[in-house]
Amino acid sequence: MNTEIREYLPLLIPLVIVQFSLLGYSLFHIFRHKSYKHGNRAIWLVVVLVGMNFIGPILYFIFGREEE
């Protein structure tokens, strides 16, 4: 089992890094802004945290983030 996991690590490590930085950045963005294009803070927090790893943050950046 141990060797099997090790086999997956080259895939998992970068995937986790990219997904968590995306998640981290979207949470940071949500907390730093008061108004959103659609929806409110609570909705976006749920979407970003629950929405399957990277899909939630992407949805937020497309539909939630206000244009500058």
């Binding site: 970068p14 995937l15 990219v18 997904q19 930085s21 995306l22 950046f61 244009e67």
Partner: peptide
């Protein structure tokens, strides 16, 4: 770059690139 759109899109492409073999 400044609106972070490029970064987010590239992240999507990277994730998809890793997901394929995964």
């Amino acid at each position: 770059v400044r609106t972070k759109r490029l970064l987010i899109l590239l992240a999507v492409f990277v994730i998809v690139g890793i997901m394929d073999p995964a």
